[in-house]
Amino acid sequence: MKNNFSVIIDGQEKTVTAEIIDKKIWFKLDAQTYSWDLIDLAEGNYQSNYKKTKSSSKSPDKILAPMPGKVIKIFVSENQTVSKGDTLLVMEAMKMEYTLKADIDSTVEKIFSKVGEQVTLGYLLIQLKNDKQG
């Protein structure tokens, strides 16, 4: 099969199953499945895409949709102050609810979603303004 072949890793021959799906390479090696963005493997693109985006996911003032799904409840309004741990919004996907909370004491700067709205993965739902940075 075209998707099965062997590669040499650390001097050992290993059987790998691999496939490209939607700009990602998926492969199975030693009973583990991995995937990686192809763009990140392209020549001249040495900076790890993963590292770059990881830091942006850590900015606590941006509340992003952690999955595709539906916004079913918004607990805050614009200009409201919130404390760390406060519930901001509830999303539903695959019939399960996920609650998104504030990681910082802050003010709600802008709300980009409405109740009932279907949003995509990574969609910016709420922009907070960090109180300490004023």
Binding site: D37, A42, T53, S56, L121, G122
Partner: peptide, 22 residues
């Protein structure tokens, strides 16, 4: 196989999850 990778990243909004693949 890498041909598609030479194209610019289509998702201009950088999603933290899109490439958060371990």
């Amino acid at each position: 196989a890498t041909q598609s990778a030479d194209q610019p990243l289509l998702n201009s909004v950088v999603s933290p999850w899109a490439s958060y693949w371990r």
